[in-house]
């Protein structure tokens, strides 16, 4: 679970959600005014949109985590449309723009639509799991949600773009989230560097699986809410059955990797 390091944890309560959105918008504002060629600026904006939408959907899941973990409630009311609406609302608050108003024929509209469709389909496809009674923790956490969305997204528009949540190699839990060589190198030499400005993203032209692509890496930092599973003491088993990584608030905890194929 990743949040903006300046705003603290993202919770299910609406007040917290609004605060989180404002903070995420600030991060986006700071990221935008980089001097760059127009094409590159467009690519970065697309990557940030995809990243923000993923975060928005993920924050919806995080806000409803307690509900999802409730073994006594059957239908949690978290169908695809509901979650997507919440995500869009969050996205809107975050960026100040309405994703539904983006022209679906543009690259950004096409990709964002695919991502929103992925959110809806993943949620619809997961209703059996989420609504299962008698099971408390069902493994449906924001990270899993994000991975499922990204996998669906790849099925939909994988020929054009991919979104992946990865992390420094030592922090990766699922081997599907393992960074590839380029990601591992950038994380090691840039994002993890001591003098890398907080929140600064990285983008570059780079090949992926042999194809030319524009690749963007957005760093995410552990907030207090993350540390219940990833914090200290290191090695203690968390609620998912996985040993904690021993991280501290503010440490680099994850990276959203966006690939825009040429």
């Amino acid at each position: 679970m990743f949040g903006d390091r300046r705003t603290g944890r993202i919770r299910g309560h609406r007040a917290h959600t609004r605060a989180t959105i404002r903070a995420l918008a600030l991060g986006v504002v700071l990221a935008l005014p980089w001097p760059a060629p127009a094409a590159e600026r467009e690519d970065v904006e697309i990557a940030l949109s995809l990243s923000n939408m993923l975060r928005a959907g993920r924050s919806v899941i995080a806000s409803n985590q307690t509900l999802i973990n409730d073994p006594d409630v059957g239908d949690k009311g978290l169908g695809g449309e509901v979650v997507l609406a919440e995500a869009v609302k969050t996205y809107r608050a975050l960026t100040g723009s309405d994703p539904l108003s983006i022209d679906p024929d543009t690259r950004e509209g096409r990709l964002l639509s695919a991502q929103m469709r992925a959110i809806r389909e993943v949620m619809d496809g997961s209703q059996g799991d989420i609504n299962a009674q008698g099971i408390g923790f069902k493994g449906f956490v924001p990270a899993v949600f994000a991975r499922l969305v990204n996998e669906r997204f790849a099925q939909l528009v994988g020929y054009e773009a991919e979104v992946k949540v990865t992390a420094p190699a030592s922090l990766v839990r699922n081997r599907k989230s393992r960074p590839d060589e380029w990601e591992a190198e950038v994380i090691r030499s840039r994002l993890s560097a001591r003098d890398w400005p907080d929140g600064k993203l990285f983008h570059a032209e780079a090949k992926k699986d042999g194809r030319e692509a524009f690749r963007v890496l957005v760093p995410e930092y552990y907030s207090e809410g993350c540390l219940s599973c990833h914090g200290e003491p290191k090695g203690e088993i968390d609620i998912t059955g996985y040993p904690k990584e021993g991280g501290k608030a503010g440490d680099l905890g994850g990276v959203i990797s966006i690939t825009l194929y040429r």
Binding site: V172, R173, N174, R175, K176, R178, Y242, P243
Partner: peptide
Amino acid sequence: DLAVSLLVLSE
């Protein structure tokens, strides 16, 4: 386990 979970830990 690895084949099922694909967890790095299992690997």
